[in-house]
Design a protein around this nucleic acid. Structure first.
Lengths: 216, 216
DNA sequence: CTATGTGAAGGTGTTCACAGCA
DNA sequence: TGCTGTGAACACCTTCACATAG
């Protein structure tokens, strides 16, 4: 009896990725009612885009009026499973890993960091916010015991693929990797999102050059 | 007399964003010759995609043979302006900012971090790798003196938009923002890439739920 | 009369299939 | 023969335009 099964055709990934921005905009706005126009403005998208995206999941608005902000926010949280207490494990407690834990703790994201692990005996046992860094060897046990569904990879490139394989084998369903390396997943049901700082910066370099060409 | 002006129609952003991955794959492969098939395999894309992307900029391969790895790498570096010594400024020397500086220094990205600034007197003067954190007030002078074309925003949400506006006014042409906030740019010639960890994690939560539905 | 919800149109990027050249 | 380079077909997303409901 899932709420969205009837309409749950194929939702575009692009739509899913915009929903969190809508959610933030709704909270930011503070009003009790909001139009697709205002919501789009705050989130950085067009009003049609907002309406199309929301329409994939149902008719949440009132014609001639707009959307009830709190109701819509709850709907989006439900669609994204943010009301299900999703838990994540951070693998790698280096500079980036610890920064990510603190970042996630500071911003109320409704995704909890439930464990941090590392392979280096030097950092195991150290505190990162409310957590203690545990040995990488505990990975599978932690995922199982704490019902972790999400993995965040912040290890050096050489260790990334083995870590990913272990996360998948341990039952993690979505992975965010910051490792500067292309990764592959065997299981097509596992979603992998890669954020590669090196690649991002190199791509940006192109646009630095482009603008210089426009205005010589 | 630019090398690619003749063909420089409208290159898809998606193509530009794949080029750094091809470059890394070329370096990783080590061979002197490589086919689009092998290159795609290493970078995580199809062979057709590789050929289409490269064809926007010229015909670099040899039919029946493949690509000369070192030549192709140099071409990609040239297209991305990585042979122009692009320099970036990191704004915000907190956890994330410092992690980014070290990350960029460690991975040979051909984009140099040329300055780090912060508004907090406590961190100004501190060392981050080879750099010293300078006052935010020096932003414009540093950009001008060190010929910086790229800005990286790693400040709290409230400060992000003002920083972006100052970066644009100071002549920066491409910006990477990690601030958990929607940003707007007035100048359409300035390219802004936003990486919003909170939004990414919330979107991932959806896929955690999706997989659980598939296998109950 | 207003703002949603949605088919239809349009645009953009990817995959296919093969011609073309070493 | 083998792999590149590329028009054509396709799939996907966004924008348009309007019927629809309050």
């Amino acid at each position: 009896m899932e709420r969205y099964d009837a309409r749950a055709r194929r939702i575009p990934d692009t739509t899913i990725r915009r929903l969190p921005a809508y959610l933030r905009a709704l909270i930011l706005a503070g009003h009790d009612r909001i139009t697709s126009e205002a919501l789009g403005q705050l989130a950085g998208y067009s009003s049609e885009q907002v309406r199309k995206d929301l329409a994939y999941f149902g008719a949440f608005g009132t014609r001639g009026v707009g959307y009830e902000a709190s109701v819509l926010a709850d709907e989006i949280r439900h669609i994204l499973q943010l009301d299900h207490g999703v838990r994540a494990i951070v693998v790698g407690a280096g500079r980036l890993g610890t920064a990510l834990v603190r970042h996630a703790d500071e911003t109320a994201s409704d995704v909890a960091i439930a464990a941090v692990v590392d392979i280096d005996p030097e950092v195991i046992g150290k505190a990162v916010d409310h957590l203690t860094v545990e040995p990488l060897s505990n990975l599978e046990r932690l995922i199982s015991e704490r019902q972790i569904g999400m993995g965040i990879i912040a290890v050096p490139p050489a260790g990334a693929q083995p870590v990913l394989d272990r996360l998948v084998a341990a039952g993690v369903r979505a992975i965010l990797s910051f490792a500067p390396k292309a990764l592959t997943v065997s299981d097509p049901a596992v979603f992998v999102q890669q954020i590669d700082l090196t690649l991002e910066m190199q791509a940006l370099a192109y646009f630095v050059g482009q603008s210089e060409r426009d205005t010589p």
